[in-house]
Nucleic acid binder design. Structure first.
Length: 211
DNA sequence: CTCCCGATAT
DNA sequence: ATATCAGGAG
């Protein structure tokens, strides 16, 4: 089977498995999604969802976050790991949004990645889910692993993987394909023990039975 | 390439 | 004890 056919088939089958894609992160506006995604680096979304309600109760608005005491933010986000970087980045991002973007989360890749701690992955998530804009495909640990196992890329660098994936899908599917690969990766094809015996992509998987 | 870093599963 | 979890920066 050709790579393009396999890519299309993966989307078709997973779109049936996940009829209504929604991020597992809890959020109610673009800023909240930005913060939640920033906190999700090397951390489970479940853990992030325990932290964000406390964060947004303490600092409800972007202006509040911009004026927050970094040490207090560190305490709140500590359990998500990398807490010093994350606390500093969130405050810096909030400050820049207030000063440069009139207090509104910017709606383009070019602008979003000027915020500290925000690169293509986080920007793509915010653009796709909060604004319905598909400027890129978010490549996180799950997309990286699934794209490799399903033979959609041979690269290891997320930027290169994104370039391999983009031509395989029409732009309007870019947000969904991320969601599908993340959820399917979590539920069926995790890093350690892939469940090849119950996998509905088994027949088109180049690495079935292989680690 | 290294460093940031806590929580959880194996 | 070690690998992994919705990464990003120097």
């Amino acid at each position: 089977m050709k790579k393009t056919e396999r890519a299309t088939e993966i989307h078709a089958r997973l779109s049936r498995r996940y009829p209504e894609p929604e991020p597992a992160l809890h959020w109610s506006d673009p800023w909240q999604l930005l913060v939640a995604t920033a906190l999700s680096a090397q951390c489970t979304d479940e853990r992030v969802n325990k932290v964000t309600p406390i964060f947004f109760e303490k600092w409800p608005t972007i202006a509040d976050a911009a004026g927050a005491d970094v040490m207090e933010v560190e305490e709140v986000v500590r359990s998500t790991g990398f807490f010093r970087n994350k606390a500093r980045n969130i405050k810096a991002a909030a400050t820049r949004i207030m000063e440069v973007y009139s207090g509104e989360v910017p709606r383009s890749m070019a602008e979003l990645i000027t915020l500290g701690g925000v690169a293509r992955k986080t920007a793509s998530i915010v653009l796709a889910n909060a604004f319905g804009i598909n400027e890129g495909i978010a490549v996180d640990t799950h997309v990286k692993r699934l794209a490799f196992r399903m033979g959609l890329t041979a690269k290891t660098d997320p930027v290169q993987i994104e370039k391999d994936l983009m031509p395989l899908y029409p732009r309007e599917q870019w947000g969904d394909i991320n969601h599908y690969l993340v959820f399917f990766g979590r539920e069926v094809c995790p890093a350690r023990k892939p469940k090849c015996d119950i996998c509905e992509l088994n027949d088109i998987c180049p690495k079935k039975g292989v680690k």
